[in-house]
Amino acid sequence: MNRIYSENGTLLLGLQSENILSDNPVQFSEYTVLFISEGEGIYYADFASFPFKAPVVLFSTPQQSIYIRETKKLTCRALQFHGDFYCIEFHRKEVACNGLLFNNIYLEPSVNLTEEQHLLYKQIVKNLADELQQEEPSEIVLRAFLQLFLAKSSSIKMNSTERLELKKDEKMDQFKTLLEENFLTLHKPSDYASLLAITPNNLTKQCNNRFNKTPTQMIQERLILEAKKHLHLTRLSIKEIAFALKFQDEYYFSRVFKKMTKISPQTFRKTTGISIVADLSRE
């Protein structure tokens, strides 16, 4: 056994000793983590691509469109978990992975490992695999190992991010701030270029250098990220979410969401579930 399921058949936690991605985009209902010990390639996640070289850990959120193109053969373990098994929002203080490893359009969805860290991850993954092989795996033990994996990844990512922030890029820092403030109302790169007092071409060039994405990709990605948050973290209706995101109606919102994610808002909510955080916020 390398998986555990809920009573209704939902995959709660799974560990596979192979790369579950191919040259064709796939979407999973679970958080997906690829622990790559050997090889290199390009990781595609939604709108962007990220070159990588082992040892490295790659991350994706539920229903992201992801695939890998290998340039050197990979040795990979795939770890997947559902929000019903481990809620990253609820455990944010323990692991700080939400907005760092997952759900962040400004950071690469990867953690590069030193050889020492690589050995530690091998041991954590072995512990997970050993527990999953038990006749009755302990969910408490499995959550503890998963939490350790995510907490260690967050710590490494935080340290590497702090080093990156030492290299200041004033215009792109301003763009990030402006995007966070205006993504609901400003949807054209030219809007942000004007606010930054630079040309649209210059904005595109600087965005590609800093974030490995175009301004259009980032604007779209930020809007869809907010939609996913509302669908997963609240019990608002689709109509209420469309209104909150300033769409003219729920039908137009659904068309835009499906065009960009390949699934409807209703399907996204059904497959990822509604987080326990949605009910905590109402207490």
Results as ranks from 00 to 15, higher is better:
K72V: 11
N98K: 15
E108Q: 12
L195K: 14
A193I: 06
E162A: 15
Q80N: 09
K270R: 13
E94F: 12
K176F: 08
A78G: 04
T216N: 10
R210H: 12
L186H: 06
S37H: 09
G41V: 09
F257N: 07
H232L: 07
D191Y: 03
S17P: 12
F268K: 01
V33P: 13
D173Q: 14
H118F: 11
E135N: 13
K188W: 08
F175C: 00
I274G: 01
L74H: 02
A48G: 04
L13C: 13
K205L: 10
Q220E: 11
R235V: 07
D84R: 15
E89M: 14
P51H: 12
K126G: 01
Q248K: 14
Q134P: 11
K270P: 05
G83I: 09
E139V: 09
I274W: 00
A193H: 01
E18M: 01
A151C: 13
L146P: 00
R222M: 14
M260S: 09
E18D: 05
L146W: 09
L179R: 13
R3N: 15
Q63L: 15
E30L: 05
D173E: 15
C207A: 14
A48P: 00
L58C: 08
F243R: 10
C97I: 06
S138H: 09
M172F: 03
A144M: 08
K213I: 12
Q147R: 14
F59S: 10
E7V: 05
R69F: 12
N103S: 10
I238N: 01
A129E: 13
A193E: 01
Y106S: 09
V111Y: 04
Q134R: 14
